[in-house]
Each structure stands twice: as C-alpha cells, then as structure tokens.
C-alpha cells in the first residue's frame, strides 16, 4: 500500500454517469469513478458486471451511450476529440495478452514508441531492452510471442504498454488467462509498476492482490458501482449485502 498522497486538484481519470449497452443489454448503468494520480484502483465483481466494458470505454475502444470521461481534465467522450491522441496517453493490457504474433518481443514493445511517438529505432530498442532486463526477459527479445509462456507473454504485454510512458495504465484481468503458478510473476510486476508511481485502474479477480496493493477497491454489479473504498473496508467489512454475497462466493472458491 502506498502512503496517502497529498490531495491533488484533479484526478487523472474522472468518470461520471457512464452508460453503455450492447444492443438491448445494458452493461454500464451510470458509473461514477475517480482515479487520482499515483493510485491503484481495482475493479472487482462477477463476470459480466461491466468491469471490462468500463475499461474499454475509458480507452475509447467503445463509444459510450451516455455520461462523460475526463482524462487530466479533458472530456475525452467529446466526439471532436482525437481518439488516437487520447489512447496515446493510456496504456492497456488485455486478458489474452494480444501480442502481435508476427513481431518479435522487441518489435512488439518498440512498435508504438517508434511509429506513434517518433522515437528512433536505436533509442526505442535500448529502452525496450532495459525494460525487458528489469523483468528478466532480455534474453527473449528476439523470440516470438508463441514461444513465450503465458506469464512471459503477459509481462511482455505490460512492458509494451509501459514503453510509451502512459499517464494511466488500464489492466483488464491480466492474470485470468494464466496458469495458477504463473499468476505470481505477473502480479509482482504490476506491484512493482504501481510502486514506481504509475496510476492504475485494473479489473481483477485476484482479491488477495487487491487487498495488498490497491488504494481503492470498487465493487461492480450489474453495471452499477455498488461500493467503493479502501480495501480493508470493501473486502473486510463491506457495507452492501451484494458485496458480502460476492465475497462469500470468492472465499468459497478459495480465492481470498
């Protein structure tokens, strides 16, 4: 857990009354959420509660039906905003890694710095190798994604998202596709990134991680943010009956 940082005037991310449906199925029904700088905010809740959709809306991968999202005070849901410019300031890591199979680990990581941010190849590769070295994958720089273990692939995906020094990092159930023994190495990297001061919004099923690494835990159900607060409150002494039910199921499944 990080120390409470002095109050900042404006959160990195502010979400107000976010509404999104897929066809007739409402997925988000008016979500309000703030993510302050250097904070780790986790979204918990059952599958289908809207966690991933919320992240996709924040990164403008989905068009919202109503409500607003501000990134550093800029309303990014305004259709006149350049969505590519917004996405450049946000890093995303997906559940299924989504590495580019035709590119080596090194090229996966340097693609955006080179093509989007105009960093020259030598510098981009030097930085990428330095990042890979920190996570013990420098020797795999020339490997292709299908030659990596799940844990290595997901750590590569995290490094790829970090290589453009984003303002906000979105993590969408980054350990859900991993074998249990590989979860630890990925969460250790997330923890290290968080301790480095990155602002993170992550959807997760890892309650233990949420409890020890998050500053704020948000419980989503049926597209509504039912409860949010520090982890010791939401996870240990939840106020809402639905939250208690969810946590009981998680405990019964041996995940807490």
């Amino acid at each position: 857990m990080t120390d409470p940082t002095p109050a900042v005037e404006q959160p990195v991310l502010r979400v107000r009354n976010l509404v999104k449906s897929y066809g007739d199925v409402p997925v988000l029904r008016g979500v309000d959420l703030d993510v302050d700088e250097h904070r780790v905010v986790t979204l918990i809740g059952a599958s289908g509660s809207g966690k991933s959709t919320l992240l996709r809306c924040v990164d403008l991968l989905e068009q919202v039906d109503d409500g607003q999202v501000w990134l550093d005070g800029q309303d990014v849901t305004d259709p006149r905003v350049d969505a590519d410019a917004v996405r450049r300031r946000i890093g995303v890591v997906f559940q299924a890694y989504n590495l580019f199979p035709h590119l080596s680990v090194l090229d996966n990581i340097t693609l955006a710095p080179r093509r989007v941010h105009g960093v020259d190849r030598a510098e981009a590769e030097e930085r990428a190798v330095a990042l890979l070295d920190r996570i013990g994958l420098a020797g795999r720089a020339r490997a292709y994604p299908d030659q990596l273990s799940g844990g290595q692939a997901q750590r590569t995906a995290i490094v790829r998202a970090l290589a453009v020094q984003p303002r906000l990092l979105l993590l969408d159930e980054v350990t859900s596709a991993l074998d249990p023994e590989l979860v630890g190495e990925v969460l250790a990297l997330v923890r290290e990134v968080a301790e480095g001061g990155m602002t993170i919004l992550m959807a997760t099923h890892e309650m233990g991680f949420a409890r020890s690494a998050a500053d704020v835990v948000c419980f989503l159900e049926g597209g509504v943010l039912l409860e949010q607060g520090p982890p010791e409150q939401v996870l240990v002494d939840p106020q809402h009956e639905r939250t208690r039910q969810f946590l009981r199921r998680v405990v019964a499944a041996g995940r807490l």
Partner: peptide, 25 residues
Amino acid sequence: PSQRAAARALGLTHRQTTRLVVLPQ
C-alpha cells in the same frame, strides 16, 4: 479484432494498424 484493439490501444491510427499489424498477418 483483438489485434486491432491492441494496436489502437497503443495509439496507432487506423491506417497504421492496417499496415503494420493487420496486413502482415
């Protein structure tokens, strides 16, 4: 489509995504 999403999430434009990520595959 997740490949396209990953490329766009990195800030690549539609055209760059097509040329650098979709077409080679």
